[in-house]
Nucleic acid binder design. Structure first.
Lengths: 150, 150
DNA sequence: GTGCTTGCAAACCGTTTGCAAGGAT
DNA sequence: ATCCTTGCAAACGGTTTGCAAGCAC
């Protein structure tokens, strides 16, 4: 799922999406891809700062936005209203842990099928549906344990 | 659904929820209740300003937050990250129109039943589910026509 | 060489806060 | 009389912007 990508892989990915491969973009994409979480811009920035102190926060903002615009990552909104980035571009829902603030991916083909079937029957007139997302809000019971999807 | 409430009705509602009925709260709740949309704080404020210029923006912020905390309205996040308020406290999903920025309520008991059934079978371990929300993103086809739910 | 990308600092905007005055119970 | 609520203005935090220098192509 989050395979570690080489420099060359990332260069390829960027140019495949019509982006110049600058060193900043390569570093930023590398970090985003390596994180299992849904980091904020600041979080990405602080992961980078030690090794690449010359990359500015503004560049991280702009770069992540560029990635979203070409479709190599997504933007998710946290409950508090700050944006978080998600390297998982496939269609999926999110679990919002209210006590830990975590956002966890939720993917299940059965659910997808269920919703696709439901919405093919129920029509919402005058609307072209582009995306259907599930948001599950809850509390993590044992704070030390990972949430297991499925 | 959004019956017009009298002054006295609102006073009653406020005290039922343990809130002092100040004139500001009555005005703000009245506006929120009368709007069919999901207004931002600024929108509520500008609806009020003409008739009640002495009510400050900060009060509108604080008051709406108070309403959420006692459960007489809800907070929804718009795509851009600004908060919007929803007088509909019953469990329901939202339709996000990407071309008009509108947020429209979506309620259907069949969908609720479908999801309840699905999640009673699928277990997410280590999570206590508190709420499941559906978000439908799409484009309004005819900008002049209202979206009809169902 | 050209046009996109970067770094910097300042501006921005929605929201929150501290505090003193005012008001509901 | 008490404690909550309000208005004001200042602060805040995340994000965006304008611009000059730098870099990929």
């Amino acid at each position: 799922m989050n395979t570690k990508l080489s420099h060359t892989d990332i260069k390829q990915l960027l140019s495949d999406h019509g982006l110049k491969s600058t060193s900043q973009r390569i570093v930023i994409y590398g970090v985003l891809n390596s994180l299992a979480t849904h980091p904020t811009t600041e979080e990405v920035y602080s992961c980078i700062r030690d090794e690449h102190p010359s990359i500015s926060l503004a560049t991280v903002y702009k770069t992540l936005e560029t990635f979203v615009s070409v479709g190599i990552c997504r933007k998710v909104m946290s409950k508090s209203g700050t944006m978080r980035y998600d390297r998982n571009v496939s269609d999926h829902g999110h679990i919002y842990c209210e006590n830990t603030e975590e956002i966890i991916d939720y993917e299940d083909s059965e659910l997808d099928a269920l919703l696709a079937d439901y919405f093919s029957r129920k029509k919402i007139s005058n609307l072209k549906i582009k995306e259907i997302k599930i948001q599950i809000n809850g509390d993590k019971i044992d704070l030390r344990k990972k949430i297991q999807v499925l």
